[in-house]
Design a protein around this nucleic acid. Structure first.
Lengths: 222, 222
DNA sequence: GGTGATTTGAGGGTTAACCCCTAACTAAAT
DNA sequence: ATTTAGTTAGGGGTTAACCCTCAAATCACC
């Protein structure tokens, strides 16, 4: 007989959240102890309950308003290091998975997957501490899990931190001069960065950079 | 007592689809007669069954691989004019709603909504033929429903057709000269269009145009 | 039939983007 | 210990983007 697992679900979409909770009825050893509809809500709930209610696994949607799944995971894991969070998303974008694992996530599920896969993931994360889906680019994640155990910092994007900053400012329709002023460096430095970014992502101009930023979730959308 | 409504659900995300089906158990007058995971699948199902199975309402996800909800709706409505399709999406983007209604959709629901709202929508669409959610920009849709009955064609975006073409080519990292060559007009014309677009959408440069295009679904993503 | 939006196109100007090059310093990887 | 990647920065050049004005033809709307 399987031991009981206490699960918290975070998803802003009521339909999806309620549906998943209902589907858990077929798996009585998984107990949904709490549900929340965004990052801020779940962080506050953890603060309030302070380990009064045991939580084994958090099932967290990535795309949420106010505070998204990545940010929320980062904050929760920093505060509750033992917490095991499984990411849930519509997209199997590599950059999404990478960033989530980097932020402390233990597994990544897609909404196209079947309920029994979700249950396996939860069981595996509760038992072993991590879960790797077969639907998600494998080698990358396993590399990640290995390296995140061994190494503290690790770069996920082909772009460096500084380059990402430049990309984000470009997406705010800033000129090179303005970006230079914001980052306290020379305009020539920003131009170097821009040229380097264009080469790296194989783009022709700022439009290519902007669309790359969207594709790789480097900019937020309303 | 409520009369029975036959519903088909189209959503590529198994978790979401199964969850919603389960939630319908609380509403026994709604009978899920079929489920499909993408546009091609549901179109084939309709071809095969050819009115053998009665369908009152289709609940269709917008974001799907292979063939998305918009395209699928357009094709189904053209073939089965009496078909009442409710759109289901994560996004309350005006352009999304507009395009869906324009393609023949009868109502638009968000995944953040509660199950009882979904049920009301289905009931209303089955009875009256359309449903307008209070969570969705109202006036626009009602305008639309009114005008799509009266008028054949209708412009949805603030941008004109030609301007949208220019935007899409800009998003392919084309220069004004290249766009001019593609559209067989003068470079000066494209510059006029570009300047006009910048003013209309209140952007500073091409990056603003690119991000506007993404936000308003004028460009497709992998 | 006039009004407004669209499409087309031109003249002429400024500047930022784009495209080369080099180069020094740093930090991390092998 | 040497290579590789990143950050910094400059020199110098070309061109596309950006910004202004003007204007004619077309089209839909009232």
């Amino acid at each position: 007989m399987k031991s009981e697992i206490n699960v918290v679900i975070v998803d802003d979409q009521n339909l999806v959240r309620q549906g998943i909770i209902r589907l858990f009825e077929d798996h009585p050893h998984i107990k949904v102890v709490h549900e929340a509809s965004d990052g801020v809500e779940i962080i506050n709930w953890f603060k309030e309950t302070k380990n009064k209610i045991p939580v084994d696994v958090v099932l967290m949607d990535m795309q949420m308003p106010n505070m998204d799944g990545w940010e929320t995971t980062e904050i929760l894991v920093r505060k509750y290091k033992q917490l095991r969070i499984i990411g849930l998303s519509s997209y199997d974008n590599e950059a999404f998975v990478d960033r989530f694992i980097k932020n402390g996530g233990r597994g990544y599920l897609l909404k196209v997957q079947e309920m029994n896969e979700v249950v396996s993931a939860i069981e595996q994360v509760a038992e072993l501490g991590y879960y790797v889906s077969e639907r998600v680019p494998l080698t990358k994640i396993q590399d990640f899990l290995r390296k995140t155990v061994l190494l503290p910092a690790f770069n996920t994007s082909v772009l460096s931190d500084q380059e990402i900053k430049v990309v984000q400012l470009i997406c705010q329709e800033k000129t090179s001069q303005e970006i230079a002023d914001i980052l306290f460096v020379s305009k020539k430095t920003i131009e170097s960065h821009r040229d380097r970014i264009l080469t790296k992502i194989n783009a022709r101009n700022m439009v290519g950079i902007a669309l790359y930023a969207v594709k790789h979730n480097l900019v937020k959308f309303s």
